[in-house]
Design a protein around this nucleic acid. Structure first.
Length: 308
DNA sequence: AAGACGAAAGTGGTTGA
DNA sequence: TCAACAACTTTCGTCTT
């Protein structure tokens, strides 16, 4: 397992708020707190085996299962042919025939479980690849893998692409563990498009009878803020504005991203670290127009006026 | 010249008959 | 299954700093 070493000591809880939802970000070698957004950026050490920093090489070069697992028999499987003849072309005795019949039956059964197995092996390596390029912590992978096994169990995967389902599992795991990644970000690393991922996601939720709460805009604040180089006070401000707006019942039916962007924009102005609407819209991946609309609404509901 | 603003038309997804 | 609808995007002209 990975240990979080900070200033020589193992860190289990956020020094700021005490939350244990610490996120390790190997890309920037940072630890951040998923709860309050505090970012610690020193000496993130990795004491676990088998991790390659994926900074320098494409992340799909990551160590997966041995390749012999991917093609479990290396393409050399034996097939019992359908003719009831022996190798000399003679008919088989009834006893022999029955024996061969049973063997065929077993072989086809084994094939089915092979297919499932192979699917799972591929899916698991894909989960690994995806979450590794998304710099996701390990527990996400486990949750995603578990979800995928359930998908197979309930046969939700019928007529659907494995890649779409895998991406959806990863997305769902992120939502569940409140380590927010947007659909856009997952799409970037996956070979399937947003539409497909979203569809698979809904199938899974329906099939497993799950329901995940809408993602909370505040969860995204710290990550986007750090991408924009905004200070902690801006983050805190943005989060508290979001919370207040939420209490006043603003964000009904609005996309979380738009709200996050708006809150960041407002907070950046209020804290004198102004970013342009464009800067923010680029990072958050919504349009300037949406930023504008949302932040107007935010202003209205909160009764804030910016002029100084 | 860059940023902010808002109108108008277009897009993709949801919902309800 | 289809049409109405809300949220969001694209595009573009205008105003402000």
């Amino acid at each position: 397992m990975l240990k979080t070493i900070y200033q020589g000591k193992e860190l289990k809880q956020c020094p700021e708020c005490g939350s244990d939802r610490l996120v390790k970000d190997f890309y920037r070698a940072e630890i951040s707190c998923a709860h309050c957004g505090l970012v610690l950026d020193e000496e993130l050490l990795d004491s676990g085996p088998d991790w390659r920093s994926s900074d320098t090489e494409p992340s799909n070069a990551r160590a997966g299962p041995p390749s012999t697992l991917m093609i479990h028999d290396k393409g050399l499987s034996t097939v019992i042919d359908w003719k009831n003849k022996d190798i000399y072309g003679k008919d088989l005795s009834p006893h022999r025939r029955a024996q061969i019949y049973r063997m065929r039956k077993w072989q086809s059964r084994i094939r089915i479980s092979d297919a499932l197995e192979r699917n799972l092996v591929f899916a698991l390596s894909e989960i690994e690849r995806l979450s590794s390029s998304l710099k996701l912590p390990k527990n996400i992978r486990e949750v995603a893998a578990l979800l995928y096994r359930q998908v197979l169990e309930k046969r939700i995967n019928k007529n659907k692409t494995t890649e779409g389902l895998v991406a959806a599992c990863v997305y769902a795991a992120c939502r569940q563990l409140k380590i927010p990644r947007t659909l856009d970000e997952i799409e970037e690393q996956s070979r399937v498009d947003k539409k497909e991922i979203g569809r698979s996601y809904r199938f899974i939720m329906m099939g497993l009878g799950m329901k995940l709460p809408l993602s909370n805009p505040a969860e995204y604040v710290s990550r986007f803020a750090s991408q924009l180089g905004l200070s902690g006070s801006v983050q805190t401000r943005a989060i508290s504005m979001l919370e207040e707006a939420l209490q006043r019942g603003l964000p009904s039916g609005r996309s979380p991203m738009g709200l996050t962007a708006a809150a960041l924009y407002l907070a950046s102005i209020l804290e004198n670290e102004k970013r342009t609407q464009r800067d923010i819209s680029e990072v958050v991946k919504v349009t300037e127009v949406t930023v504008r609309n949302r932040y107007k609404e935010l202003q209205d509901t909160l009764g804030i006026d910016i002029k100084d």
